[in-house]
């Protein structure tokens, strides 16, 4: 499973430090996943108490980010890692930032849930919301899973699936805008749903970022500005 050979350093403490970084990222990821699931349920069911819980978890996610950031910085200073070790540490530093942002976006969804709780349910948008939420939750899970297994193929799939999500987000927004023009009294409540959709779309982008970091980690390739088929070709060539 460990195709980066994290456990093969001459220094056992270094093995342990890197492993701790890896599991720390996965734990933080699990936390954000749960936070997202709660936020989605809170907005779908206009559950104020659940929304409040999501907002509380955010502090814990922030603390995790700070802790892991310090761990990574210590490794950089004390071990001066190179090659795949260096890429792992850099990857974690970037990925925890993305996870923290995902947490922020989940909190935004929770805040929209609280507003809808006050103003009453929106007349439209729940179908789109549920649809996008399912896809985004899957994407986040797939990104974390790809990290756990250092699996570039799954990572490439995450990047690809995020593009689909962006397309679906656009079409959902178009539909809701059309609806609001027909029924201006619903604007404020439908806007809350739209903000939640927007947050989901951003979460998808962060999951894609994490997938891109994984490709960099495993193959040392920066894939942010090249086409996916090129990425796949390069991965095949490096095998």
């Amino acid at each position: 499973m460990d195709n980066l050979h994290l456990d093969q350093h001459i220094s056992r403490q270094f093995n342990a430090d890197l492993e701790q970084l890896r599991t720390g990222l996965l734990e933080m990821g699990g936390m954000v996943e749960a936070q997202l699931a709660d936020a989605i349920q809170a907005i779908e069911t206009a559950d104020g108490a659940l929304a409040e819980k999501v907002l509380k978890v955010e502090d814990e996610v922030d603390r995790r980010e700070i802790f892991l950031d310090a761990e990574a910085t210590t490794i950089l200073a004390r071990r001066q890692p190179a090659a795949s070790d260096l890429r792992l540490v850099l990857m974690v530093i970037k990925a925890i930032r993305d996870l923290e942002r995902m947490g922020d976006e989940a909190s935004k969804i929770a805040r929209m849930a609280l507003l809808l709780n006050d103003e009453g349910e929106a007349p439209r948008g729940y179908v789109e919301l549920r649809h996008l939420a399912t896809k985004v939750a899957k994407l986040v899970n797939a990104a974390l899973d790809a990290f756990a297994r250092f699996d570039v193929y799954s990572a490439v799939k995450v990047v690809r699936d995020d593009r689909e999500i962006d397309v679906e987000y656009q079409s959902a927004i178009r539909e809701l805008i059309t609806y609001m023009m027909e029924d201006p009294r619903a604007i404020s409540r439908v806007m809350n749903i739209m903000w939640a959709l927007r947050a989901l779309e951003r979460i998808g982008d962060h999951a894609r970022n994490i997938a891109e970091h994984i490709i960099y980690l495993v193959h040392g390739m920066d894939v942010r500005h090249i086409s996916l088929s090129e990425v796949e070709k390069n991965i095949e060539a490096q095998k």
Binding site: H9, I10, P81, A82, A83, S84, D85, R87, G220
Partner: peptide, 19 residues
């Protein structure tokens, strides 16, 4: 390149302090 993404496994092992 050598210190971020070496081409050979032996190089990688050596610079990252692996056996």
């Amino acid at each position: 390149k050598v210190f971020t993404n070496p081409e050979h496994d032996l190089t990688e092992s050596y610079i990252t302090g692996r056996l």
